[in-house]
Amino acid sequence: MVTLPHCAYFEAGRCRSCVLIETPCPTQLSDKERRCRELLPQVPESLWLPSVQGGTADFRNKAKLVVGGRAGAVTLGILGRDGAGIDLRDCLIQEPAIRHAIPHLAAFIEATGLEPYDVPRRRGELKFVHVTLAPSGDLMLRFVTRTEQALHVLRKALPRLLERVPSAVVVSVNLLPEHKAVLEGEREELLLGSSLEMGLGDVSLHLRPQSFFQTNTAVARALYAQAAAWVAAERPDTIWDLYCGVGGFALHCAAAVHGAPRVLGVEISASAVESARRSATEAGIAAEFIAADATAFALGSPAAETPHTVIVNPPRRGIGAELSAWLERAPAQRIIYSSCNPESLAADLAAMPSWGVRGARVFDMFPHTRHLEVMVLLERTV
């Protein structure tokens, strides 16, 4: 039996983010599987592949830490119901290298004298610190601040930061002057480096400070490998990767494209597209990436350019009515749909009755929570 991590924060009621941490991991996973099967009754039991487990501890490659407390005595963790900071620097779901870095980050922040942002009073400077870990051990650090003054302080203090956290290869400051319940603003100022290299075997992805990447590196590898296996079984001549982000699916599936490779990734974030292009160039992969809205791109493309296989990896809201309707009538032959929300996936599939499920798999990307990733392989039946 897998031993659950002993979380003092949960037991003391200081943090309840891992709502299922007292539930045995096999039960957590079976409950997620049952939920997906109930929402997707069109998938025969024989087509569900064994689920990919996400781990019990030390699995999260990203920490989004609220800066609380007061100048000289900061907390790094979450906000309590009263708006005060709760320190979670020993959170067991973070990868060990992140846990190791957090006390050094706290000490650095205290040394700068920057005042943590007080949410109830709407005053202070430093709001969040985001920490992302690459498989190599390199770190990307992002400080979310309220004013330019904090940016100047952090820029001047960069050498001291690197003394405390020498594994940092990317450091940036994000400006969020408004009082909003969001994690970052639009403006990002790089202080060190440009992108974090996420080595995933044959392909390395480059993450810029505002790039999206899955929070569980081991499960992300399995997710990309499954998509590549489904593509390899069919050997299509063309692929579109819609909502491609930094190109994870497109780059991992490109080797399975038959003949002259025609792989296209579409992503609304221009910086993510730049990262995907860099990864393709470094890996020698003939894939093209463009910055555009996925739905608008598909709807505006001639039917003759529709690929054999379409990969979609949308946000929680799903692909929506317009893109579902386009896929329903498009001459594509296969769809790989990776979803972080089985409810929106079920709604999208209901809008595409001409497609039948040929494979499905649950990926426990977020252990100890009710969140999950589920991926389905669709083939046209009509």
Rank of each mutant, 00 (worst) to 15 (best):
A73L: 02
V74I: 09
T75V: 01
I78E: 02
I78Y: 06
I78L: 08
L79Y: 14
L79C: 04
G80N: 05
R81A: 09
G83Y: 14
A84N: 04
A84E: 06
D87L: 01
L88H: 02
R89Q: 13
R89K: 07
L92Q: 07
I93R: 00
E95V: 07
P96I: 01
A97F: 03
A97I: 02
I98L: 12
H100M: 03
A101T: 05
A101P: 12
P103W: 02
H104I: 12
H104D: 14
H104P: 14
L105H: 04
A107H: 15
I109G: 03
E110M: 09
T112C: 02
G113E: 03
E115M: 11
P116W: 02
D118P: 11
D118A: 12
R121Q: 14
R122C: 08
G124I: 14
E125F: 12
L126H: 12
L126T: 10
H130I: 06
V131W: 13
V131G: 13
T132E: 11
T132R: 08
A134L: 15
P135T: 10
P135V: 03
P135I: 05
G137A: 10
G137F: 07
L139C: 01
T145E: 11
R146T: 10
R146P: 11
E148P: 11
A150T: 06
H152F: 05
L154V: 04
L154Y: 03
L154I: 01
L154N: 11
K156F: 15
K156Y: 10
K156C: 15
A157L: 12
L158E: 00
P159M: 08
R160F: 02
R160S: 15
R160E: 14
L161H: 03
L162Q: 14
P166Q: 00
P166D: 14
S167R: 09
S167K: 05
S167M: 08
V169H: 01
